[in-house]
Design a protein around this nucleic acid. Structure first.
Length: 916
RNA sequence: GGGGGCUUAGCUCAGCUGGUUCAGAGCAUCUGCCUUACAAGCAGAGGGUCACUGGUUCGAACCCAGUAGCCCCCA
């Protein structure tokens, strides 16, 4: 059979993926074996695969495949996230394209469209992962909004509410005017911005003027947000600010609305910033809100949910907030009330999902009480700090700690429809209960177990009545319900992360009544592989959920991948067009090549600078392996008796030598896995295969052209190929499975995917291979002198350990084209000299030898060695070194000294001989 | 403003608890080869004052302090 020179991944990848699937190798059910579990960070259900997913899932697949080969019960659970905001935004956009406005349809209708959309596009991403070779247990695929998982979310909400960890409160929150929902602090991205700082004059009231004898007419207030002037309820200065001491307690007039407000004093004010006067707008700034609370100021929210000016503002009503800013500036300028405009850099919060500028807003929402949470479950922090849950790389422990030390309450309600609806029920007066069903809610009301409405939830009630009166569903359950009250369920849904944080538990139905066999077997999971960007969103919260819901950690190790960037360090993004299409890459280079390309350049936690040449390297590596197989497959076989004893012995030695290289590599690789240094592990395999296996071992045992190979050598070569393929399989599953099968004519004892992974072994005998240096030495000489490899050399070795070289004679002859090796013969007249250890090697070389150059080379080496010796001697003669250094260090130094002395002597000897 | 991290060959990065036969790897570069497994290849080579300054030490890429530059997170 003629094999192509190039490996074609396309022909084999689909075949093996189906084979693995059809034979159930990815499936896992609890048994007596040790489990090894990974839950996939669920991608957005309507997302498409990007390079970050590729990296992330490649790493997970490497880990899971290795565990499977080690005989563990490997279980990798895939799934998708409903991604509340992102998905809802997509559906809204899709509907808008059809001419349907969300506000014109009911919640049920909207959800109908959303599910339709989800069923159509959902899960494409998982199909794409299959192309990558991901060996997930697809039968376990979960979705965060499927019935069981949603139930778990609701149950957890109710439990935490009862436990006092969840409360309803009125606070200043983040408002996304594009998504029309509140956001948690984590969903707000602060970006640096060039802003105008306007110096606005607030005129004094007549009374205030009098105290200043009418000499001063007003004060200057610096603001970047003049459109919130209508919400100003005070001016605040620092009590230590000499400039304004007189003003404290006096009144000034807010421009535009001519509201009379007081000047108050608080240490919080930065004297240096602007004019040192702050306009206090409690509805639109967190710090102003705090001041407002402290001094009991009125709250005037001038914006509506769209970010337009609300009627409450009393001016510019209906205008967009940014248009309004421009208009107010223009109007105030005309009135001469803006005295100065300054360019400054400040940071402005944007919505993570919609990128809209966030507004701070007073609102009644549901929160998780984090301070309390951490008091109850201190392991959330301590178990990460003491490596009970171990972070790779560990530097993220600091980030984690810092966040938890400064944690704030988590706003979990979202004004959306796509998600788990909050199980809270309100009566007409706004009294509320938390209950799973309307019937239970009625029961609670009837027992008077409800809470009174919060002071400031008028907005919310308004919203409920507007949106939901038409679709309140009354339970018809048995008619026991006291329907005197007309109950309405909370219109809001829960933050997506409020379901994701249960993921490692809920995918095994750990929160569901009934059979917990899977949960008990697989949980806690072993490794989590994710990006550092969701360390707070997700990683920290899974740890929280783990300890709160069952007192157990969710996983033992967290591997933080880097962010995939292009080679100019820019983030990959659609708008920049610098992100390759993963499916195209796989089609072009093969999944194995892409996997290797991603892994090679991505040590844990470092950003990966994606460059297609990395993937090319991966593809080339596949080709190299393919050709190693072609070589072995092409040999003609003869019985051992048919070849010379020398060859048999030489090949046996080569095999031993490779065994040593192999086991050393295995030990290094397993250690690298322990340390979660996957790219290092892969690099070690790469070098083992390319250098040790192909360049050395195969060249050693390769018969001269046209000659056959003896049976035992072929068997060894095949075994060795199998070994390196096995080692490589977790990284490059397709080519290794393919070659393993063809190597054994389609009849391997078991498929590669479950072939046993090698183990640590430190007992392997070391083979003295210093004789091989002669090969490199001679190749180097040929290169330097421009000699063809066809010209054979003789070599004279001056040594007391002939055996070391004798064993390798055949190999040296073959790889360096050496015709004869003489031991301890006289040094020829004309020759090149080199040292291997302390043995002298002479290579007779009649033509055009540059004596002077040779001498110079030797002289240089001598100088170096003498300098080296000097430094070693200096140490050994230093009493403080001898008394302070560890014994083995001193021993090493002594050995260095002895070696150097011997070499120096030999060099001197050669130099004097040449001089004669 | 607060916190964390980084700075080692042209590029991307390894260098554990300080001991110069440890300054290393891959890629890139250069030289010579189409040697019937592989030019997606073979053989060989050249690249670094380990950011800077000072300190600790018998000894510093590694520990400490300061300086400069870069990055990330938080407010």
């Amino acid at each position: 059979m003629e094999l192509d020179k190039h490996y074609s991944p396309q022909q084999v990848e689909d075949k093996w993926y189906s084979y693995w699937m059809d034979n159930g190798f990815f499936d896992s059910t609890p048994d007596e074996r040790e489990p090894y579990t990974i839950v996939m960070p669920p991608p957005n259900v309507t997302g498409v695969l990007h390079m970050g997913h590729m990296l992330n899932n490649t790493i997970q697949d490497v880990l899971i495949r290795k565990a499977r080969m080690e005989g563990k019960n490997a279980c990798w659970v895939p799934g998708t996230d409903h991604a509340s905001i992102a998905t809802e935004a997509k559906v809204v956009k899709m509907l808008a394209e059809k001419g349907i406005k969300k506000s014109d349809i009911t919640r049920e209708e909207f959800l109908g469209y959303a599910w339709e959309w989800k069923n159509k596009y959902g899960g494409i991403i998982l199909e794409q992962l299959k192309k990558l070779g991901a060996s997930c247990d697809w039968k376990r695929t979960r979705f965060t909004m499927e019935e069981d998982l949603s139930n778990a979310v609701i149950d957890v909400f109710i439990k935490m509410y009862k436990d006092g960890l969840i409360y309803r409160g009125t606070k200043i929150v983040n408002w996304d005017p594009a998504g029309k929902t509140t956001l948690s602090d984590e969903e707000v991205i602060y970006k640096e911005n060039n802003s105008n700082l306007y110096y606005v004059t607030y005129l004094f009231t007549e009374q205030t003027k009098k105290t200043f004898n009418n000499e001063i007419g007003g004060l200057q207030v610096a603001t970047t947000r003049p459109e919130t002037i209508m919400g100003d309820v005070a001016i605040c200065v620092n009590p230590n600010d000499e400039r304004y001491k007189e003003l404290i307690g006096k009144t000034v007039i807010v421009p535009v609305v001519n509201r009379v407000v007081k000047v108050i004093a608080d240490e919080y004010i930065d004297i240096e910033f602007g004019t040192g006067c702050l306009k206090v707008t409690p509805a639109h700034d967190e710090n102003d809100y705090k001041i407002g609370e402290k001094y009991n100021l009125e709250i005037i929210d001038v914006l509506d949910d769209d970010g337009k000016i609300h009627e409450r503002a009393g001016a510019y009503v209906g205008m967009d907030r940014f248009a309004c800013r421009k208009q107010i500036v223009k109007d105030l300028e005309e009135q001469g009330l803006i005295t100065k405009t300054e360019q400054i850099k400040n940071t402005v919060g944007h919505s993570e999902r919609t990128d809209a500028v966030i507004e701070k807003k007073i609102s009644t929402q549901w929160f998780v009480n984090m301070q309390d949470y951490m008091k109850r479950y201190p392991q959330v922090l301590s178990d990460v700090m003491n490596d009970e849950i171990s972070f790779h790389p560990s530097k993220f422990k600091n980030v984690y700690k810092h966040w938890l030390d400064n944690i704030k309450d988590w706003n979990i309600s979202r004004q959306l429809w796509w998600g788990q609806r909050i199980p809270a029920w309100y009566d007409e007066k706004g009294n509320y209960v938390v209950a799973k069903t309307e019937a239970e809610a009625h029961a609670l009301f009837n027992n008077n177990a409800y809470k009174a409405p919060l002071a400031d939830n008028s907005n919310l009630i308004e919203r409920h009545t507007n949106q939901d009166t038409q679709n309140v569903q009354h339970s018809t359950d048995e008619g026991h319900i006291n329907t005197l009250r007309n109950l309405t369920q909370d219109a809001d849904v829960l933050d997506t992360w409020f379901s994701s944080w249960l993921w490692p538990i809920s995918v095994f139905d750990g929160l569901k009544e009934g059979d917990k066999k899977d949960y008990q077997y697989y949980y806690p999971t072993n490794d989590l592989v994710t990006g550092p960007d969701i360390i707070f969103f997700w990683v920290a919260r899974m740890v929280m959920a783990g300890y709160a819901l069952n007192g157990q950690k969710p996983f033992s190790n967290v591997y933080f991948t880097g962010i995939v960037r292009d080679k100019l360090r820019r983030k990959m993004s659609k708008s920049l067009g610098n992100s390759p299409e993963p499916m195209d890459l796989i089609a072009k280079f093969g999944a194995d090549g892409v996997r290797m390309g991603m892994l090679l350049s991505s040590p844990a936690g470092n950003d990966i600078l994606f460059d297609e040449t990395n993937v090319e390297q991966g593809r080339n590596f596949c080709n190299k392996i393919w050709n190693a197989y072609r070589l072995i497959a092409g040999w003609q076989i003869v019985k051992d008796e048919a070849v010379s004893a020398d060859i048999i012995a030489s090949n046996a030695l080569a095999n031993q030598w490779f065994e040593m290289k192999y086991q050393t590599a295995v030990n290094d690789i397993l250690q690298a896995f322990e340390d979660y240094k996957l790219s290092e592990a892969l690099m070690t395999i790469y070098k083992l295969i390319w250098d040790d296996f192909c360049s050395w071992y195969l060249e050693m045992v390769k018969p001269v052209y046209g000659e056959p190979i003896n049976e035992s050598t072929l068997t060894q070569a095949k075994n060795n190929l199998e070994k390196v393929l096995t080692l490589l399989h977790p990284f490059m599953p397709f080519i290794t499975e393919e070659l393993y099968h063809v190597l054994y004519e389609g009849q391997p004892t078991k498929p590669m995917i479950v072939n046993a992974y090698p183990k640590m072994d430190n007992s392997i005998a070391s083979i003295d291979d210093r004789a091989l240096q002669i090969i490199t030495e001679i190749r180097n000489i040929r290169n330097n002198k421009g000699l063809s490899p066809k010209v054979a050399f003789e070599v004279i070795i001056k040594t007391e350990q002939e055996a070391i070289y004798k064993a390798w004679e055949t190999t040296i002859g073959k790889l360096a084209n050496v015709s004869a090796i003489l031991y301890n013969a006289a040094k020829p007249e004309k020759c090149l000299t080199t040292l291997i250890g302390t043995d002298e090697i002479f290579i007779p070389f009649a033509e055009a030898i540059d004596e002077a150059a040779e001498m110079k080379k030797m002289q240089e080496e001598l100088t170096y060695l003498e300098g080296f010796l000097k430094s070693v001697d200096a140490k050994l003669n230093n009493d403080r070194f001898v008394s302070n250094a560890k014994p083995d260090v001193i021993e090493k130094e002594k050995q260095k000294r002895a070696d150097a002395l011997e070499k120096i002597e030999k060099l001197k000897h050669s130099l004097t001989q040449n001089n004669n």
